[in-house]
Design a protein around this nucleic acid. Structure first.
Ligand SMILES: [Mn+2]
Ligand SMILES: [Mn+2]
Ligand SMILES: [Mn+2]
Ligand SMILES: [Mn+2]
Lengths: 222, 222
DNA sequence: TAATTTTTTTAGGTTAAACTAAATTATATT
DNA sequence: AATATAATTTAGTTTAACCTAAAAAAATTA
């Protein structure tokens, strides 16, 4: 009744899910770029997923995930983030080392495994990068955050996540001690290079435009 | 330099390793049966693995794993058994539920992951079925065990493993409380049906020929 | 609107891993 | 030794997932 998906199919579904939820247009090229394949391959796979009612597709009109496709994608994201949490909290990996391994682990097929793992980890709500972990029903907490570059000067904020997940960026943040949970005060934005001045642990520091745009925070009163 | 193996290649290597170390002849048919494929598919794969110097092969003469192939196979077995241990000890799976999941997990590619997992688990020496877990260098403890049917009457023995790993057999053993570590006294073997009489927890019980042949024990003095 | 550029699809091929059926080699039986 | 049986290999297909190059459609720009 529920023919099991191949790893490729799962990866396409997940890519479409991500593009869909990040509002970005879900064009054939965008999907191809996201998966490191070519547009022609995407068109083929899209047809197969449409056959399986995981998304709706009309030629040249792009795709939209169906309820079923969306739910399946959420399940893969759930696994990915639970495994990342496991790798960091239990196996002592750094937050910049876990994504590639989770890309493999997310395809392990066993409902029991996911539920037991979730239980074992204490039903975490957020993964090591601050991304919400969907629960068994696919529900996850809303992330009302914005990037540092959108914060008004002279306000306090708590670091809550990253937009860019590249190891290079993550390592850079860690070196600067800009890790999740830390509180910062945004002092000012420099018009010349869009760098941002802020205070972290009572010390003044400057972060580049690139960092400010990819570091997510939540405003806090004060 | 070390082209990474596909999941299929890994499964063939592992099957050959198992047949090889259990003395069974490594015929094309035996491998095919072990992997649920057909002999023709085996011949093809064998050629590829021989190309990669993971085994030696001469037409109609069968195969022998090379040092390199043997080492790689050991690495997969190591991962399989470490994951089984993890599933039972940390995620509270039963010993009859872990094999299929470990069949998937054993193919996750990350040296770091295996070493961290091993460390996290406390470098276990045996998996939930009593099979030895190879260490990082491929060394594992020798299992000087034999099946209950080979034990002389009136001797004590400790349950140390299973020959048959099927969930049905494992569940059956658990129901009869014949679990690893338990001590039993072998009383007698019945000539009529080869069933074996033994004492477990001060109670007399009979086990069938099939059970006696697939339950592994270590003799103990007394 | 017409021309140009970009995006998407189609057509046709490749590769890994499977399969069936037929041919070949090895082993066992008479 | 001749024959029958079993194991193995070869030949020829299939399928999923990719690819390149060309065609078609859509979006931009002039
Ligand atoms: Mn990730
Ligand atoms: Mn993450
Ligand atoms: Mn197993
Ligand atoms: Mn085992």
């Amino acid at each position: 009744m529920m023919s099991t998906l191949s790893i490729s199919e799962e990866n396409y579904l997940k890519a479409i899910f991500h593009l869909y939820t990040h509002d970005a247009g879900i064009g054939t090229n965008a999907i191809a770029h996201h998966l490191n394949t070519k547009a022609a391959s995407v068109t083929e796979m899209i047809k197969k997923l449409a056959e399986k009612k995981l998304l709706t597709y009309e030629k040249y009109q792009g795709v939209v995930p169906t309820r079923k496709g969306f739910t399946l994608a959420l399940g893969i994201v759930r696994k990915h983030r639970l495994w990342e949490y496991f790798l960091v909290e239990k196996l002592k990996f750094k937050w910049d080392e876990v994504h590639d391994i989770a890309e493999q682990l997310e395809h392990i097929k066993s409902e029991r495994l996911v539920e037991q793992l979730d239980h074992y980890l204490g039903f975490p709500k957020l993964d090591p990068h601050g991304d919400p972990i969907p629960d068994k029903e696919g529900k996850m907490c809303a992330m009302n955050c914005c990037c540092v570059s959108d914060i008004k000067p002279n306000s306090n904020a708590k670091i809550s996540g990253v937009k860019n997940h590249s190891p290079a960026f993550l390592k850079h943040l860690e070196k600067m001690k800009l890790t999740i949970g830390k509180t910062v005060k945004v002092i000012d934005r420099n018009d010349f290079d869009q760098s941002v001045e802020l205070v972290l642990n009572h010390e003044t520091m400057y972060i580049s435009k690139e960092v400010a745009e990819n570091l997510l925070v939540k405003k806090i009163k004060g």
